[in-house]
Design a protein around this nucleic acid. Structure first.
Length: 662
DNA sequence: ATTAGGG
DNA sequence: CCCTAAT
């Protein structure tokens, strides 16, 4: 048996909150709640436009692992870059079938990585590029974001059409938001004459053939013969004017009704190895099923266990076993094998531990978005880009590039398809009342428009709720996870307040609505610097998982494995304390007592955690993994376990009749 | 819906 | 964490 080497790539800025499957309880819930509807119509229906159309597309796409298929959305462009950072970018693309709008490639030049990219892509050295590499990465992508086409709202209450023109600004008369406002996402030719949307090689740095393996990603053009790849991070040497018709993307939303939706959004993040220098972490992590999705992988390639703590040989054993058993498995079961292969981590460059605290996909609209007041009293906005939270990916060295692409794609897709909703921030403050008009909120005012921001959030925002927050759990300040806030050298991150994601690791659910967002404090900062737009805090992944944002996300949700959320010491502490008090057979009570507000922790989870705690306490410290649990707690675990085991035995002696014969 | 255990 | 069986 060969130990499988896995490459860990921390995607700074991806924050991949692989949308966790909704808790069972949630999954059982009714389909579409009122809230869903409300949210679906939330701010500009960007959710539907952006998340729904773009991301979910990957759902049905075949699992292609070969780069030769040209179906991958994730591309690793520059392999010449040493071990250090491997920039990746998520780009909107269209494989012709409009199956997916995103793909990831890594051709972003980085400030500290100039030598690499410059070699491959001379263009990176030009002035326009320096912008990206230095402080304006995200900004650049903003323009990339093309939102357009017709999108029929599923709720059917209204139709919105957000369009993005290419270099030529265009306004759609059909664009309607709640019948009140028109949002035009415009991609304007920038001053430098750079156009983000163009055709063919002009658009992206194709110096490196690897960029577009197979068929070049392109938008579906009205003229089917014309492919319009959208790569924002590569600044075309010359401006390319594309007519609006050139950028039409067929929406898959409602096959019958949706005609076209264009909104490729691009985000650039850096893909980097989790550790420095050629350091490839060798881990055997993730359940074998995580990797099952990666086609063409040999048995040995499968990860062996999800606990990262099992003997290697289990890997093969399990992989084989699963592989076989899967064949005779009902679909319901089988689907579980195709789960996401991504884990979310703190993404810290040097951070070792996985930690999926912020389950929030808190994607934020990074970068500036400019707004324009049109003569029709319409508010025109240009959203430069949405930030995709950080992702953490692990993949065997033996995996193909294609599988890596797919893995990344899946991760991104999972995140985006998990039910995103759009949040609107003004002056750094979140606008929660969806019923207010842009006029009322001030969005339409010239002086306010620059402080407007959008965020992509993992879960539908709470509907406007009363001031009282009693209904929602609050986040404990403790257990703040610093690493989470790490982002790639993206200038926009400066503007974004990182701290917001901090507390997500807390076992106490945070309350999106009531918890003051860090953003609030920087309102003035946003205000003046249009570049620094929003930041999006909030949302706990949990919330995300609980209520699918829309039908699509719902489908996506199916079979989605819950994201792994290691227990924090604080949680362990709470668990231990509760068990000491209640015993080991009353998980329901333990849950209610200590994890009432931690919706993502079910009593089964607690029971399982206790099980592992007992195990952990029994093994040598050297064998333990993950965030170390204070020995003191482990001692208490053993003590409590012993005590309650004894109690249980006593009970059985007293009431043998209740004892089940084995 | 819970609990207990194996995977 | 998932999945099941048994309550």
């Amino acid at each position: 048996m060969v130990l499988q080497k896995r490459l860990d790539y921390g995607f700074n800025g991806f924050q991949v909150p692989v949308t966790p499957r909704a808790p069972r309880s949630a999954r059982r819930r009714s389909t579409i709640s009122k809230r869903d509807e409300d949210n679906s119509m939330g701010a500009f229906d960007l959710l539907a436009t952006v998340a729904g159309k773009l991301l979910l597309e990957g759902e049905s796409s075949p699992a292609s692992s070969h780069t030769s298929t040209g179906k991958e959305k994730c591309s690793i462009v520059n392999d010449s870059c040493p071990d250090g950072d491997k920039p990746l970018k998520v780009e909107p693309c269209d494989q012709g079938s409009c199956d997916r709008k995103f793909f990831v490639s890594d051709n972003i030049s980085q400030g500290h990585n100039q030598s690499c990219s410059s070699k491959e892509s001379p263009v990176h050295q030009n002035e326009s590029h320096s912008v990206m590499t230095t402080s304006n990465c995200s900004e650049r992508f903003v323009s990339d974001m093309l939102v357009g086409g017709k999108c029929k709202n599923e709720i059917g209450s209204f139709t919105s059409k957000v369009q993005a023109g290419s270099s030529v600004y265009r306004e759609s008369g059909e664009c309607k938001l709640d019948g009140e406002a028109k949002v035009i996402v415009k991609d304007e030719t920038n001053k430098r004459g750079e156009v983000l949307i163009g055709t063919g090689a002009d658009m992206c740095s194709l110096e490196d053939p690897m960029v577009w393996e197979g068929e070049p990603p392109a938008l579906v053009s009205s003229d089917s013969s014309t492919k319009v790849p959208i790569c924002v991070d590569h600044i075309p040497q010359k401006p390319i004017l594309a007519s609006r018709d050139d950028v039409k993307i067929v929406s898959r939303d409602d096959d019958e009704n949706s005609s076209g939706c264009t909104h490729p959004s691009t985000t650039t993040r850096y893909l980097r190895t989790a550790q420095r220098i050629g350091d490839r972490r060798i881990r055997k992590v993730l359940a074998s099923r995580y990797w099952k999705a990666a086609p063409k992988m040999k048995d040995g390639a499968y990860s062996n266990s999800y606990r990262d703590m099992r003997p290697i040989y289990h890997g093969r054993k399990n992989g084989y076993k699963r592989q076989r058993s899967q064949m005779n498995m009902p679909f319901k079961k089988r689907r579980l094998f195709d789960r996401s292969t991504v884990l979310k981590s703190n993404g810290g460059i040097s951070s070792e531990s996985f930690f999926d605290s912020a389950n929030a996909i808190s994607s934020s609209v990074a970068g500036q978005h400019s707004a324009f007041q049109s003569r029709n009293s319409h508010v025109k906005l240009r959203i430069k880009s949405f930030r995709v939270p950080e992702l953490f990916i692990e993949i065997p060295e033996t995996a193909t590039v294609g599988s890596l692409k797919k893995t990344v794609m899946d991760a991104v897709t999972a995140v985006l398809g998990g039910g995103l909703c759009v949040g609107v921030l003004l002056q750094g403050k979140k606008l929660r009342d969806d019923t207010k008009t842009l006029q009322q909120t001030g969005i339409s005012q010239d002086d306010q428009i620059d402080s407007l921001g959008f965020t992509l959030e993992p879960n539908p925002p709470h509907t406007p709720t009363p001031l009282c927050s009693g209904d929602s759990p609050r986040m404990l300040p403790c257990d703040v996870l610093q690493p989470l806030t790490r982002y790639a050298p993206d200038p926009s991150s400066e503007a974004s307040l990182e701290p917001h994601m901090a507390a997500l690791g807390s076992f106490i659910e945070s309350d999106h609505d009531s918890a003051p967002s860090p953003t609030d404090t920087s309102a003035d900062k946003s205000t003046t610097d249009s570049k620094a737009l929003v930041v999006v805090p909030e949302m706990s992944a949990e919330a995300l998982a609980v209520v699918p944002g829309n039908r699509k996300s719902k489908r996506f949700d199916i079979g989605q494995r819950r994201i792994r959320r290691p227990f924090s010491v604080a949680e362990v502490e709470a668990l231990v304390q509760a068990v000491e008090k209640l015993g080991t057979g009353r998980w329901r009570d333990v849950k209610m007592r200590a994890f009432e507000n931690a919706k993502h922790r079910t009593y089964v989870d607690l029971k399982d955690k206790w099980k592992t705690l007992v195990h952990t306490a029994r093994i040598s410290p050297q064998q333990r993994r993950g965030e170390p649990v204070p020995q003191e707690l482990l001692d208490r675990v053993l003590t409590a376990h012993a005590y309650w085991s004894q109690q249980q035995a006593k009970q059985q002696l007293k009431h043998p009749e209740s004892c089940v014969l084995v």
